[in-house]
Design a protein around this nucleic acid. Sequence first.
DNA 1: ACCCAGAATGTTAGTGACTAACATTTGGTC
DNA 2: GACCAAATGTTAGTCACTAACATTCTGGGT
Lengths: 188, 188
Amino acid sequence: MATSRTLRTRARILDAALDLFERQGYDATTVNQVAEAAGVTPMTFFRHFATKDAVLVTDPYDPLIAEAVGDQPGHLPPLERTRRGLLAALGDITPTEDATARRRVALVARSPSLRAAVAVGTEATQDAIVERLVADGTDRLDAAIAAAACLAATTAALLAWGTAPDDVTLAQLVRRALAHLAPAGAPS
Amino acid sequence: MATSRTLRTRARILDAALDLFERQGYDATTVNQVAEAAGVTPMTFFRHFATKDAVLVTDPYDPLIAEAVGDQPGHLPPLERTRRGLLAALGDITPTEDATARRRVALVARSPSLRAAVAVGTEATQDAIVERLVADGTDRLDAAIAAAACLAATTAALLAWGTAPDDVTLAQLVRRALAHLAPAGAPS
DNA sequence: ACCCAGAATGTTAGTGACTAACATTTGGTC
DNA sequence: GACCAAATGTTAGTCACTAACATTCTGGGT
């Protein structure tokens, strides 16, 4: 298969980008610099990552999250249903698979333009949740409000994790964030 | 004073932009087109609006909101304090001052790139709230979570308002959004 | 009416993210 | 060793945005 070469190139670009972004800042680093450091043409960079920020911002979790929300009891109000769904999907997440996750999040936390990119990505997740709730009869606006609030709290936790001490777990912070949205100091 | 000329030019640019954006879409419209339609140089466009999206996205409400949050009883949990503050600041808002508000919001609701710009703007509001809460002793992460959740719900209401029937009030939707975050079906 | 700062606009030239169309190389297969 | 297709390169362009400098207005004092 031809993917092995692809994967190696992609990894080289990613390494070079992470390195340069950390050393001189995201905004101060051009795609050309990253490409050159990776021994590659700028054009090739964009063939592997659709945008400059795509190197750092990726979230393929949408379908899982929407499913987890749908799995919660349908008689609950949308906010609580979403909250429990997110808790189920992310409450015990452990990004061991990707040791660079924290570096990426730390970079995102530092750059406004990157946080904007995260917001765009989050919107897709929000839409997925909304569609799932609407399918069960929830009013669209109510669903959007619930999803937006829960995801915003979760994102705040994610960004905080980027600059938190090493022994702090992402799952811990997410649980803490969602606990704030629990009905009146209620259980878990 | 020299501002009269400035205001007229700014208004011409704004009118031209709104018109073109509505007719051919935000992303499909270039700054050059807007400038030309306004009888002005692209450079002049940027002297009046720092970015292309600044024509549509502006929110000078940050200090008012932060103050309103600070005015709520300090013994309340941060989420409830923020919620009541936003309610006080926006719960009876009436954008009569600007008849184009709804057109602008409708445009924002249609374009992902514009929603990203809104997210960036909201971040400033969030920071203002967070600083105010932190000044009163709230933990920074808790403050960020509370502000993010409340503002996300509010933004969802704002975007919905853009495409809602004419007799629906922005204040109505904001109150509805924040009601979702009230502790256990509690009062107003 | 005249003049003159200073604001407002224009001009030119450039950077950086991204795209489209087409040419070239590379790696595995028969 | 020739062949096919994926991966990369090349070229040329668009668009948002910026900096430095030149020009034109506009209002206020004489």
